[in-house]
């Protein structure tokens, strides 16, 4: 099966591991991602001011260009997925947004594209039972904290991804790989996000709480689909500010998937992590 794919900016630079592991793991499961031609940044922040349509134009253009290819558009970065899904929701449900954005696009886009996240593809297209059969048991018994953060699940009515307070899709995914998802009460807490550039204390204190909670519940690694969550939690520990010993590797869920499928580790992007996950995963 071929599906159109929007990588997003960070996946071409700091989060190459997320891009490479997503493409490789889905390809191993029979899903070929076809990168959209001429894509741009999604805008990163969904504009929360009602009168700010200009902040939605880039995402609207991406959604419209995908509509010419296929119904669905795969994107894995939590920021991109959040922005594309909410802009699409606005175009579908808000006549003013639809009219104004189409004035910019010079198209008649009505919200036909369906942004999908690889976790949804794994659940609904591949199936967790089929995934269980493919995972080789290499990671059996590994204790994993599934960290959703904010943007995948909130706001629930627009994201329609999972329960906003107690999502479980990542735990179901982890269980299918043969690893052991741990109870993790901070799974939808925010890591502080872009405040790393403005109010660093927020990221340091929230990051420490999230890591400590994961470690206290026995986690050996933490998984996420957000390059900024990954950076904040990993970098904090790289600076020696994590206070969790041993340091907790922060992985993309697709890197865990690639490892469980026994894909070559060199293609999964582990070398750019601050806390090296290789001794634990491949050791």
């Amino acid at each position: 099966m071929k599906l159109p794919y929007f990588p997003g900016c960070t996946l071409y630079t700091r989060a190459r591991g997320l891009d490479h592991s997503t493409r490789a793991a889905l390809a191993a499961l029979g899903i070929e991602l076809e990168e959209l031609p001429n894509w741009t940044c999604c805008g990163t922040a969904f504009p929360l001011a009602q009168d700010s349509y200009i902040g939605m134009v880039a995402a609207a253009r991406i959604l419209d260009s995908a509509a010419q290819h296929n119904g669905r558009l795969v994107t894995v970065c939590s920021f991109c997925y959040h922005v594309l899904k909410r802009v699409n929701h606005s175009i579908k449900n808000n006549a003013e947004a639809r009219r104004k954005l189409n004035d910019y696009l010079e198209q008649g886009y009505g919200g036909e594209t369906v942004p999908v996240h690889p976790l949804e593809i794994l659940k609904h297209d591949v199936g967790f039972e089929a995934l269980r059969a493919r995972a080789r048991g290499r990671l059996k018994g590994l204790k994993v904290a599934c960290y959703y953060g904010c943007l995948l699940v909130r706001p629930a009515a627009e994201m329609a991804f999972d329960d906003p307070e107690n999502p479980t899709i990542m735990e179901e995914f982890a269980a299918a790989l043969g690893v052991e998802p741990v109870h993790f009460p901070y799974k939808t807490a925010c890591c502080g996000s872009y405040q790393v550039l403005n109010a660093y204390d927020v990221v340091a204190s929230r990051g420490r709480e999230i890591l400590a909670a994961a470690a206290a519940h026995g986690a050996q690694v933490l998984i996420t689909s957000c390059p900024l969550c990954q950076f904040n939690l990993d970098w904090l520990q790289g600076r020696g500010e994590g206070t969790v010993l041993p340091a907790l590797p922060v992985l993309y869920f697709t890197q865990l998937l690639g490892t469980a499928l026994e894909l070559p580790a060199e293609g999964l992007g582990f070398e750019s992590h601050y806390v090296d996950p290789r001794p634990l995963l491949l050791g």
Binding site: C9, R14, C41, C77, V196, L197, N198, F231, W235
Partner: peptide
């Protein structure tokens, strides 16, 4: 509240650019 010269250069070269774009759009 956020201007480029306020951000430590060491951080700016490490942080994913989504944080930079988002922070400047918000702040």
């Amino acid at each position: 509240v956020l201007s480029p010269e306020r951000i430590p250069a060491a951080l700016l070269t490490e942080v994913p650019q989504m944080a930079v774009t988002c922070a400047f759009r918000k702040l």
